[in-house]
Amino acid sequence: MKLGFNFKKSWTIASKDYRTYFTSPIAYIVIAGFLILMGWMFFFNLSHFNLQSLQYKQFGMGKGMSLTDGLIRPLYGNMNVILLFLVPFVTMRLFAEEKKMQTLQLLLTAPLTLGEIIVGKFLSAFLLVATMVLLTLVYPIVLIVFGNPDPGVIFTSYLGTLMLTGCYVSMGVLFSSMTENQIVAGALTFAAGLFFWLVNWASQSAGPVFSDFLDYLSLIQHYNNFSQGIIDTTDVVFYLSFTGLGLFITHRVLDSYRWR
């Protein structure tokens, strides 16, 4: 059996599903909710930062806080938490809805490999989330116009956020492939995302080797370097392999349905 992979076919699925998000209320609600929350975060963080750096100056503590530590890092940290909540709403329909509506048969009886289908589905959700993440570029633009932020940190923050988002979406694809109930898919995605976010909380009480392992598993631990402007291959490899593993398991799950 040839295992050819034709990206064009994945793209056909991805672009159709991406457009589907905009024919239903999902995209508008999720994007609007996200932007409102982010706008409020930005405003809150900025005014807090202004107040603090003013106080720093009054008490003569040097030049004041840096934009990176006082504003950019908390802002994108918050964004990652909001995404943890919102991504399940985007990914839950991917396979679950197609199963429920019996439309998955169209894909499974078309000359496509499972890999092409899964990559297409992943891309459609990832591109939607990337769209809303990139809409927040307006905030750093404001900062660049009125202030003097470190563009490197902004770049790595976006890079890290997008890679972290890939992990969320990959988990969403997986859980959506396991059920025909969208709520179940969404809830599992959120629970799993939160678990891999908090998994290193246990590391303080774990033994030395195991605690390193738990730290390594934590999704947020790998974001720390990105938020400081560092691109470490360990983190990149972790995020990419996490995403790849999720998609691989999805492949096994969908393949198993054929044999039942």
Binding site: T20, T23, S24, M101, Q102, T103, Q105, L106, T109
Partner: peptide, 13 residues
């Protein structure tokens, strides 16, 4: 070309 028992159509399209 395959037509399953329930036509695999996307209602929103």
């Amino acid at each position: 070309g395959y037509l399953p028992e329930i036509p695999p159509v996307y209602p929103e399209m």
